[in-house]
Simulated assay, not measured.
Amino acid sequence: MKQLTFILVAFAFFAASCNNAGQTQKSSESKETVAETGAIVFDADSLYAVAESLIDEPVAIKGYVTHTCEHSGKRCFLTGEGQKYSIRVEAKGDIGSFDKELVGSQLKVNGILRERRLTEVEIADMESSVNEKLTKEEASAETCEAELANINEMKDWMKARGKDYYSIYYVDGLNYEKVHN
């Protein structure tokens, strides 16, 4: 449940921009070499285990489309078989936009892995905003509790790694193809 709420908070954080963005082990099924790019094809869930070492590098990611931004189509979100993580894909390169009809489809996206760092100050501001909504009863207590739990997970992640920021990984998608099973 915590992981689902984390995905929802991350989604909410980036969904607002649509109008103008734990560890797993790699499995042999989740990667394969792509001859034309030299990239490894990662399952959306397995990418997080090695993401830090692949920032600004070419990657290929395979996953199921859970959402496309309906106003601009400039981003979509992919999740893996285990649905443990979700990763945002920005429409760049040959990708004009992502059609909403892609939701539920499996894609293989070639692109460049990027990182967005949330600073301690930004996270503290998020926490203050949630607490303010809670005191003003602008949102349900359940929603605020879920958001606060995700913020605490971010803080725990930073503390466990000795970092003063929280990493959000995303892919600047250069091209994609539908995967037919």
Rank of each mutant, 00 (worst) to 15 (best):
L4G: 14
T5D: 12
V9Q: 09
F11Q: 10
F11M: 14
A12N: 14
A15C: 10
A15W: 04
A15E: 15
A16K: 13
N20C: 05
G22C: 13
G22I: 12
G22H: 13
Q23L: 09
Q25W: 08
K26M: 15
S28G: 14
A39M: 05
A39G: 08
I40E: 13
V41D: 04
F42N: 06
F42G: 12
D45A: 08
D45V: 09
L47V: 15
L47F: 03
A49K: 08
V50M: 04
V50R: 02
A51T: 10
E52K: 06
E52P: 05
E52W: 01
S53M: 12
D56M: 11
E57F: 14
P58R: 07
A60E: 02
I61E: 00
K62T: 08
K62L: 09
G63N: 02
G63F: 03
Y64Q: 12
Y64N: 01
Y64H: 04
V65H: 02
T66A: 06
C69D: 01
H71M: 04
H71G: 00
S72P: 00
G73C: 01
K74S: 00
K74W: 00
K74T: 00
F77Q: 05
L78E: 03
G80L: 03
G82R: 12
Q83W: 02
K84D: 07
Y85G: 05
S86K: 08
I87T: 05
V89N: 00
V89S: 01
E90M: 15
A91D: 00
K92C: 00
K92W: 04
G93T: 00
I95P: 00
F98V: 01
F98P: 01
D99W: 01
D99A: 15
V103I: 15
S105I: 01
L107G: 07
K108P: 02
V109K: 02
N110K: 10
G111F: 01
L113N: 06
R114A: 12
E115R: 11
E115D: 02
R117D: 01
L118Q: 03
L118Y: 13
V121H: 12
I123N: 05
M126V: 04
S129V: 02
S129Q: 10
S129L: 07
E132G: 07
E132M: 11
K133A: 09
T135Q: 14
T135W: 02
K136T: 11
E137R: 03
E138R: 08
E138L: 15
A139M: 10
A139N: 12
A141C: 07
T143W: 10
T143N: 08
E145I: 06
L148A: 09
L148V: 03
A149Q: 11
A149V: 12
N150M: 09
N152M: 11
E153P: 02
M154S: 01
K155C: 01
W157C: 04
W157Y: 14
K159C: 01
A160F: 09
R161E: 12
R161I: 10
K163W: 11
D164L: 08
Y165V: 05
Y166P: 03
S167A: 14
Y169V: 08
V171D: 03
D172N: 14
D172I: 10
G173F: 07
G173Q: 05
N175Q: 11
N175A: 13
Y176R: 04
E177C: 10
E177G: 11
E177H: 08
K178L: 05
